[in-house]
Structures are given as structure tokens and as C-alpha cells.
């Protein structure tokens, strides 16, 4: 994985669109906080490699039907940031 984009803004926020716009082929996106609502929003299309923080999904009663790359816990989140060559926290 080249760049891991960590985003906590809701899809309506301009920074969410900016993040999607910056996504490269080898990049992945990690949804936390309000950003996880993108998985419940039928008007949002997300790129291939998408991770979402489990605690935030459960807080909002969102279970991602589409097959996302994975629900991650806080610990997994740490290892994801280590795997990535570069991390951007939006």
C-alpha cells in the first residue's frame, strides 16, 4: 500500500471529496468517525480499498453490506499505518 488516507469528516464535508480526489491506484482509505457514514450513504461511491473503524460503525449501527476491505479495530489501524509508505490524516 502506497498512501493510507485517514478521514474522519462526513461525506458532505469538502475535505472528504478532496481526499477521494487524491486517491492513487495503490492507495487505501480508512474511514473513522463521521466518515463511516459514507458506507450507509447510497449516493457515495468509494474506491477499491476501503477500511472502516469497527467502533465507529457499531456506534452508528452501520454494517457495510458492500464488501469493503475490512472492519478494523484501533490496533489494526496502527498496523495499517505502519504498512503504508505514507499516511495522510485528513
Amino acid at each position: 500500500m502506497h498512501t493510507l488516507h485517514i478521514i474522519s469528516k462526513s461525506p458532505g464535508h469538502t475535505r472528504f471529496r478532496e481526499c477521494l480526489g487524491m486517491m492513487g491506484e495503490q492507495d487505501a482509505i480508512l474511514l473513522t468517525g463521521n466518515a463511516v457514514t459514507a458506507l450507509a450513504d447510497s449516493t457515495i461511491t468509494l474506491p477499491e480499498t476501503v477500511y472502516a473503524l469497527q467502533e465507529d460503525l457499531r456506534a452508528r449501527a452501520i454494517d457495510p453490506e458492500q464488501d469493503i476491505s475490512g472492519q478494523v479495530t484501533f490496533d489494526d489501524m496502527v498496523s495499517l499505518t505502519i504498512q503504508a509508505q505514507r499516511v495522510i490524516s485528513w
Binding site: 469497527q54 467502533e55 465507529d56 457499531r58 456506534a59 452508528r60 449501527a61 452501520i62
Partner: peptide, 9 residues
């Protein structure tokens, strides 16, 4: 929405 469990956060 039903089933909210925000304990984890």
C-alpha cells in the same frame, strides 16, 4: 437508526 452501540467510542 436502531441498534446504536457507541460504547466503543
Amino acid at each position: 437508526k436502531q441498534g446504536q452501540e457507541p460504547g466503543g467510542i
